[in-house]
Amino acid sequence: MFVVLLVLIVILGSVVFHMVSPWWWSEIASNWVGMDDTIILTFWITGAVFVAIGLFMAYCIWKFRYQKDKRAEYEPENSKLEWTLTILTTIGVIALLAPGLIVWNNFVTVPKGAYEIEVVGQQWGWMYRLPGKDGVLGTTSIKNIDDDNPFGLNTDDPYSLDDVLVDADDLHILVDRPLKLNLRALDVLHDFYVPQFRAKMDMVPGTITYYWFTPIKTGEYEILCAEYCGTGHYAMLGYVYVDEQKEYDEWVNEQMTFEEVLASNGKSDLIKIALNKKNDL
């Protein structure tokens, strides 16, 4: 009968572990409280099912243990019971799914006022691009990438010259402003993930993916790459600083625009072409 004890210990032990575990998520720093809430809801429902099934099973094992002169009941099926359980389960599943889908709908619908930043992943580091004064990110192509143009911006795109290029692993963003991250990878899959923001999305070479969130707390947050990207995957780290407007502006002003990058590399001819294009517009 140790097995009954074992089942009880495993069931109750799991519950106790859950309650005392110091390993739990860090305080959320974005608007995705809905995700945490859905997890908690899922915990309650699934936890109740887990405990109920476990305790019922422990009871059965103890109560109906083998006795030589006893016979088991002969009951091939019980449609009523089975359908009741099916319907109850369906209700439980709907209760889980509905809030999940609502949160997901929010997650994939970027609000109108969101500003954009591009995150570029490559083996094994991060780069960022801000839209600059015109508020629009210039278009890019992998083919354009070279030492002078690490982001592969199209020089004939009028929106590209004022883009701010950040060739570093760290990024600053504004607190309390919805932010849409445009995600781009140059070589293999990556994933821009900050645990406190909860959100993540793979970056896929050949296409641009996105997600959005609103940081709600200033501070310094570590970036982890969450999609396996080769030998250096574990070292693909960086920092996001959530700033107030003033600190953010200071940081932006320290960065170089695409125009400045080209100028510093002595590519004034390219700038000229780009400016002409811009005037044509």
Partner: peptide
């Protein structure tokens, strides 16, 4: 199996999967 199946309800529920996937 009950334990593993129930945690599947976390991951299958798309919004919950966002923070948990790849962890």
């Amino acid at each position: 199996f009950v334990n593993g199946g129930l945690t599947g309800l976390f991951l299958g529920n798309v919004a919950v999967d966002v923070p948990l996937s790849d962890t």
